[in-house]
Amino acid sequence: MSVRSIGVVSCSGECCVEGTISRIATRFVLEKLKPDDTVTICLPLFSIGEEGERMFAKEFPTIAIDGCEKRCAQHAIEKFSAKTARSLLVSDLLKKWSVKNVGSRRKLTREGKEIASKVAKEIVAAMDDISARGGQ
């Protein structure tokens, strides 16, 4: 069974460059890689209690994209809606890929943009896996 919509919830943190990469990777998925299958959930809107966002995350599978160990996106979804289907931690991915020069929170370097694109592909792989497992 394929799953029509998957929610992608990105970190909205400003405290580290991984937050910037999380948001840009999520935008790449929404705009270029999976525009028809992806719904993004606005984390600040979600956390103030907007019912539509919370209901979506209860009924559809979600992927949390977090910049740092605080994992705010994952914790918010699991606190207010349901367990996330997948969770990606950008700081772990950067360590795994031995990435050094991604730029600043305000402006990514060319390498930073390439890494955001690589994170976006990880999101797409997670979406395909969820879809193949019927939403699990």
């Binding site: 606005c42 600040p44 809107l45 956390s47 103030i48």
Partner: peptide, 11 residues
């Protein structure tokens, strides 16, 4: 206009 930052701060 949803003013999420303001509302999160108030909460």
């Amino acid at each position: 206009p949803n003013e999420c930052a303001k509302k999160n701060l108030e909460l």
